[in-house]
Structures are given as structure tokens and as C-alpha cells.
Design a binder for these strands. Sequence first.
DNA 1: AAGATTTACAACCGCGAGCGA
DNA 2: GTCGCTCGCGGTTGTAAATCT
Length: 232
Amino acid sequence: MESMKSVKPQPKKNLWKPEEDLVLKAYIEAHGEGKWTTVSKKSGLKRGGKSCRLRWKNYLRPDIKRGDMSQEEEDLIIRLHKLLGNRWSLIAGRLPGRTDNEVKNHWNTYLNKRGKKRVIGSNKHQESNKKIRAGNISNEACRPNSSSIAETGIDVRKEEKEERSHMKKTNSSMDETQSFDSGLDFPIVPGTSAVFGFEDQPFMTNLDSFFFLEALDSGWVDPNSHLQWIMP
DNA sequence: AAGATTTACAACCGCGAGCGA
DNA sequence: GTCGCTCGCGGTTGTAAATCT
């Protein structure tokens, strides 16, 4: 037991180095995507296929759009999350250049907290934090947790910890989705011509997500107007 | 100045689906 | 039918950096 105290634990995360990125990128550009176990073996990288795939998909792909989420993108994420729940790959599929991991992180970092605070439509926190990280400003407004506790009396971080432990116990992500009020300030209801109805729960718990996305693609649903159904 | 706290994000893990042998 | 392999997804955790005390 005492030896555990004296030995500094090795970092569990193995961050990708720029050289590794170059190797992976070069290999995939030469041989194409897929066969990730082969990539990890033949590229010479001491990484598993899974790790290579993740790195390429979330970071190295040329069509990745990095940087701040636009207001439109945030709104779309909020709406799609309300409809689809935590199906990040489906949500990311509607956001060109964004990955499921990025959408998921963004939700957990900004939108989920905002939802809890019932403040929708403000991007100030995100912008301020980016500036702070860039070393541009110093502002207490960029510390949402401190301010949120002061304003609302709710410790969001504490809530999140409790929520995490609850999630582990129940092992049900969709439960969270159903109980979580995203804080939308508009009702997501079908238009008058719609043939669907639903209770106060994620839309897609009762419908196939792909059907919805097909509808989105075909223009039956307008994602920019409170998700009204526009039946042909 | 130093340690504690907070934040965003990259990366890992476990599970399940798909597919060919 | 089932076994093994690969891949993709969602949840979770670790790390770096900024800020606070």
C-alpha cells in the first residue's frame, strides 16, 4: 500500500504527437480509409486500429471544420438532440465538418449547462472562453460555474457529478434524455398538417431516426423553423 | 508564487452490430 | 448457427491551460 504512494502513476492518456499525425495522414492519403488494423500495423504507428480511426475521423480528416460553432449549428444541435437524444453520430451527420465527438463535447460543455440554466440563444460564454484560452481577456463572465452558483444557487458541477453517478447506476443514457429539459423556449410540435403526435419525450424514441432524417433531407421538415412538418 | 479549481477537448473503453468463413 | 474479426457509437476520463484563492 505504501508503495502506491511513492510511485507516480503513469499518464493513462496517450496524446498524439504531430509526427504520428503526419505518418497516419500520409498513410491514409496513400492507401485510403478503412482496414484500421492494417493501418496501425503497416504505418509503423504504435497505435491500435481503433485509435488510428478515431484520430483520423475526429482530427485529421481534411473536411473537418474546426473552430467555434455558429449560432445556427448550436440551434440545430439543440433541436436534433431533443428529437434524437444522445445519438451524436446522427446529429453530427447533419452538421457538415463536425464530428460526433465534437458535437458530444460541445453539448456536454456548453449546451447541456445552458439547458440546465434555461438560457438559450447566447453564445457569450463560448466566445469569452475562447478568448480567455487565447489569452485575450480576463473576465468573470467567462466563469459560468461561479456565476451560475451565484445567480441560481445551483452548483452545476455538483449536479453533473451526481448525475454521472446516477448514470452509472442506471446505465441508461436515454433516461437522462427523457428527463432532461433542454430548455427550449419554443414547443417542438408538428405543424397543423402533421400526422404525428408525441408526449413530452424525445421524438425519436417512438420513431425511426432514419425516417426523420430522410424527411429532413426531402424537405418535409424544416430544421430552421422550429421543426415544423411540411408535408407534400 | 504556489497550489487549487475550473474548463474545453482529446482520447480511451466497453459494448453491440455487421460480415465473412 | 456460431465464431472471430472489424468497425462504429456513446459514455467516460485524463490532460493542458487558464484562472482563482
